[in-house]
Design a protein around this nucleic acid. Structure first.
Length: 670
DNA sequence: TCCACCCCTG
DNA sequence: CAGGGGTGGA
C-alpha cells in the first residue's frame, strides 16, 4: 500500500501530469505538424543539438499565429465532416499559415525581415517546398485534397494519428499561454542569406532528412508513451471512479468521449469539449473525493492503530506500575497523561479509547481502597455511594483516606463519561462489594462498639437505633450493650452526651446495672398508664416517675414524644367519637358520656392498657368525657374550620391533669 | 432565634 | 411509635 501522503497526493499530481503530458505531447505533435510549415521556409543551418529547441520555438511561434487566427475553436471553421477532423486541422493549419500575413509559409508572404526577397528566391522556395513535400510525404499534401478523396491508407494512418492526438487537444489552452510567453522570443528566420541559397537548400535537404528521421522516431516514441499513459490514465481514473463502473466501461466511455471529441470540428465541438472537460473535471473531483475519503479513513485508522499500540503498551506499563506503586495519585496522573495523548486521535474511535482506558480504570477502582466523597465527582461519587443500593451500604464510611487524591482525579473522572457504565458493568459482573472490597463502606458489624461509631453520621445512628430499638422491644436486654444501643437513640447534638454516659457507665459497672441507660418497653407501658393521670407531664414529673432512667435530653425528648403520641391518639379518638355522636344525632351533650362500657373507653384502654391489668381511674373517664364534649361543641359550632381549633381544647385538657400516684415512682411498680 | 408542640407520614 | 417539617410564643 502506498503511504497516505502519496495516495493523498496522487489525484492532485494526476491532473497536472495529464496536462503536462498532453502539453508535451501537443508540443511535439504540434511540432510534427507545424514543421511542415517550417519546412516550407528556409531554415538556418542549425546544429543537430539545437534542432528540437528550434523546432519548439518555431512551433510556438506558429501556434501564436494560429491563436491569432482563432484556429482552434473558431466557430467559423467550415470543416464539418466527421472524417476530416485531423485532416481538416492539418489542412486548415496549412491554409491558415498560408493566409496569415505573419506566417512563414512558402506562399510568398514573408516574415517581417523578408520584404526584399525577390521573386527569384520565391521561385526557389517553391521548388524546395515541393521537394520537401515529396520527400516527407507530409499530410500537408492533403491540403490540396482534404475532402473525401483521401486514400484509404492515408486515412487509416491519419486515424491512428488522430486517435493519439484526440486527447491532446484538451490542454491546448495551457499550451497557448505557455507558447505565448515563449513565442515572444525573437525568431531566427531573418538570418537567411540570399547569396547562399543553393548551398542552404542543399543543407536544408540534408537537415530535413535527418530531422524527418528524428521526428519520426520522436513521434513513434511519443505515440508509444502517450498510448501507454492514456491507458494508464483511464485505468487509474476507473480505479478511483464511482464504484460500480468497471474499468472497461470507463475505458469505453473514454474512447467514446475521444471519438466524439474528434468526430468533427464544429461549434458543437467547442461546447462538447467544454462538457467533456467538465466531465473530466467531475471525474477528477470524484476520484479526488473518493481517494480523499479512502485516504482519510485509512490515515485515521492507521493513526488509531498506532495510538492504540502505544496506549496498549503504555497501559501494560501502567498496569505493572500500578501494581507496584498502588498509588491512586500516580495512576491518575498517568491516566490523565494517556488520555491527553488519546484526546486528539481517539475522538472518532471511542472503542479504542474505551478499550485503552477501561482496564486501567477498572484496576484503579479496584485498587482504590477508599475514596472521599468530597474528592469525587459525579462518576466516582456514584461509585462510592452506589453500594447504597443495598440498604446496609447506606452507612457512609468515615475513614481516613490512606492516599491523598490529586486534583487530577477530578478531571480524570469528570471527563470520562464511560466510567459509570464501566462501574455498572463491573457491579453487574462482580457485585457491589467485589470491586470495593477494600472499601470499608460497610462496618463489619453493626453491633460493633468502636470509636468509629462516634464519628458515624446521624443516619447511621438512627438506623442503628431502629434496629436496636426494635430488637430491644422484642427482646428486652438490660445489658450494658443494650444501654449503649439505646444511647444511640439520642439526637445528634446529644451524641457526645450519650458517649459520656456510656463511658460513665463503663467506669461504674454498678451504676450501669442499677440505672437504665435507656427507655425500655416497661417504661413505655408505665408511661401509658401514667397517661391516665396526666396528659401533659412535665419533665420533672417524668424524671420523678422514672427514677431508674438516666435522663438526658434524648431520653426526655423520647418520653415527651411518647406522651405527645399518646395525646395524639387520645385526641384523635375524641374527635372521632365526637363526630360520630354528631352524626348519630345526639343533640343533648348530657347524652354524650364516657363510661367503662363505652366504645371510646375500650379503644383508649386497648391502646394504653392493652393487658387490661390496670384499673383506669374514674378521673380519666371524667377527663375523657370532658374532652369529648369539647370536641363535640367545637365541631357543632363548626370551629373545626379553623386550622388551630384544637388548641383551645388542648388548653382545656392540659388543665385537667392529675397527680400520678406515688406508687408509679418506684421501679418495682412494673 | 429557640423551643415546644402540632401535624403528617411511614 | 418515630421522624421530620411547620408554627407560634417567649
Amino acid at each position: 500500500m502506498a503511504t497516505p501522503q502519496l495516495r493523498l497526493m496522487h489525484p492532485l499530481p494526476c491532473t497536472p501530469t495529464v496536462h503536462l503530458t498532453v502539453s508535451a505531447g501537443h508540443r511535439l505533435d504540434s511540432t510534427y505538424q507545424r514543421n511542415r510549415a517550417m519546412y516550407e521556409e528556409p531554415l538556418p543551418s542549425y546544429s543537430s543539438g539545437s534542432i528540437i529547441s528550434q523546432l519548439l520555438r518555431k512551433t510556438i511561434h506558429n501556434k501564436r499565429a494560429l491563436d491569432e487566427s482563432h484556429f482552434y475553436l473558431s466557430s467559423s471553421t467550415p470543416a464539418d465532416s466527421s472524417q476530416e477532423d485531423q485532416s481538416s486541422v492539418s489542412s486548415k493549419d496549412s491554409m491558415v499559415e498560408a493566409q496569415s500575413p505573419n506566417s512563414h509559409a512558402s506562399t510568398g508572404a514573408s516574415a517581417e525581415g523578408e520584404h526584399h526577397v525577390t521573386d527569384h528566391l520565391q521561385a526557389k522556395r517553391a521548388r524546395v517546398e515541393n521537394i520537401i513535400r515529396v520527400m516527407v510525404g507530409s499530410p500537408n499534401s492533403r491540403q490540396h485534397g482534404h475532402s473525401d478523396t483521401d486514400t484509404r491508407d492515408t486515412r487509416e494512418a491519419r486515424e491512428a494519428f488522430r486517435e493519439n492526438k484526440r486527447k491532446q487537444r484538451l490542454p491546448q489552452y495551457q499550451d497557448h499561454s505557455a507558447g505565448g510567453l515563449l513565442g515572444k522570443t525573437p525568431g531566427c528566420c531573418n538570418s537567411e542569406n540570399c547569396n547562399t541559397k543553393h548551398e542552404e537548400c542543399h543543407k536544408l535537404k540534408e537537415q530535413l532528412h535527418s530531422m524527418q528521421r528524428l521526428l519520426h522516431q520522436l513521434q513513434e516514441k511519443f505515440l508509444q508513451v502517450y498510448n501507454q499513459e492514456d491507458r494508464d490514465e483511464i485505468e487509474v481514473a476507473a480505479e478511483h471512479d464511482i464504484p460500480g463502473e468497471s474499468t472497461e466501461v470507463q475505458y469505453v466511455h473514454s474512447q467514446d468521449d475521444f471519438r466524439k471529441k474528434n468526430s468533427r470540428m464544429s461549434t458543437e465541438y467547442k461546447d462538447q469539449r467544454k462538457v467533456v472537460s467538465c466531465v473530466v473535471h467531475q471525474r477528477e473531483s470524484q476520484s479526488l473525493q473518493e481517494t480523499l475519503k479512502q485516504e482519510l479513513s485509512k490515515a485515521v485508522s492507521e493513526c488509531v492503530d498506532r495510538v492504540f499500540k502505544k496506549v496498549s503498551s503504555a497501559g501494560l506499563d501502567l498496569s505493572s506500575q500500578s501494581h507496584m506503586s498502588s498509588s491512586p495519585e500516580m495512576q491518575l496522573s498517568m491516566s490523565a497523561d494517556s488520555r491527553s495523548k488519546l484526546a486528539s486521535s481517539t475522538q472518532e474511535q471511542p472503542q479504542a479509547e474505551e478499550a485503552a482506558v477501561k482496564p486501567r480504570s477498572l484496576e484503579y477502582y479496584e485498587n482504590s481502597e477508599a475514596q472521599s466523597p468530597q474528592d469525587q465527582t459525579e462518576a466516582l461519587s456514584l461509585v462510592v455511594r452506589k453500594p447504597a443500593v443495598t440498604p446496609l451500604s447506606s452507612v457512609t464510611p468515615t475513614v481516613t483516606r490512606p492516599y491523598p487524591v490529586h486534583q487530577t482525579s477530578f478531571q480524570f473522572n469528570y471527563s470520562t463519561p464511560l466510567h459509570d457504565s464501566q462501574i455498572l458493568e463491573h457491579l453487574l459482573k462482580y457485585g457491589p462489594h467485589s470491586s470495593f472490597g477494600g472499601l470499608p463502606c460497610m462496618p463489619p458489624s453493626l453491633d460493633r462498639t468502636s470509636p468509629d461509631s462516634v464519628d458515624l453520621p446521624w443516619d447511621t445512628i438512627a438506623m442503628r437505633s431502629k434496629v436496636t430499638s426494635s430488637h430491644l422491644s422484642h427482646h428486652p436486654c438490660p445489658s450494658s450493650l443494650g444501654a449503649v444501643m439505646v444511647d444511640n437513640l439520642c439526637l445528634p447534638h446529644v451524641k457526645i452526651e450519650c458517649g459520656e454516659l456510656q463511658s460513665m457507665a463503663e467506669r461504674n459497672p454498678y451504676m450501669s446495672l442499677n440505672i437504665q441507660e435507656g427507655l425500655t418497653p416497661s417504661h413505655l407501658k408505665k408511661a401509658k398508664l401514667m397517661f391516665f393521670y396526666t396528659r401533659y407531664p412535665s419533665s420533672n414529673v417524668l424524671k420523678t416517675f422514672f427514677p431508674d432512667v438516666k435522663f438526658n435530653r434524648c431520653i426526655t425528648s423520647q418520653l415527651i414524644k411518647w406522651f405527645s403520641n399518646f395525646r395524639e391518639f387520645y385526641y384523635i379518638q375524641m374527635e372521632k367519637y365526637a363526630r360520630q355522636a354528631i352524626v348519630d344525632g345526639i343533640r343533648d351533650i348530657t347524652d354524650l358520656t364516657v363510661s367503662r362500657d363505652s366504645e371510646l373507653f375500650r379503644a383508649l384502654n386497648m391502646h394504653y392498657n392493652k393487658a387490661n391489668d390496670f384499673h383506669v381511674p374514674d378521673r380519666f373517664l371524667e377527663v375523657a368525657e370532658i374532652t369529648l364534649h369539647e370536641f363535640y361543641n367545637a365541631i357543632s359550632a363548626a370551629k373545626d374550620s379553623d386550622p388551630s381549633w384544637k388548641k383551645a381544647i388542648y388548653k382545656v385538657i392540659c388543665k385537667l391533669d392529675n397527680d400520678v400516684p406515688e406508687e408509679f415512682k418506684t421501679s418495682s411498680y412494673l
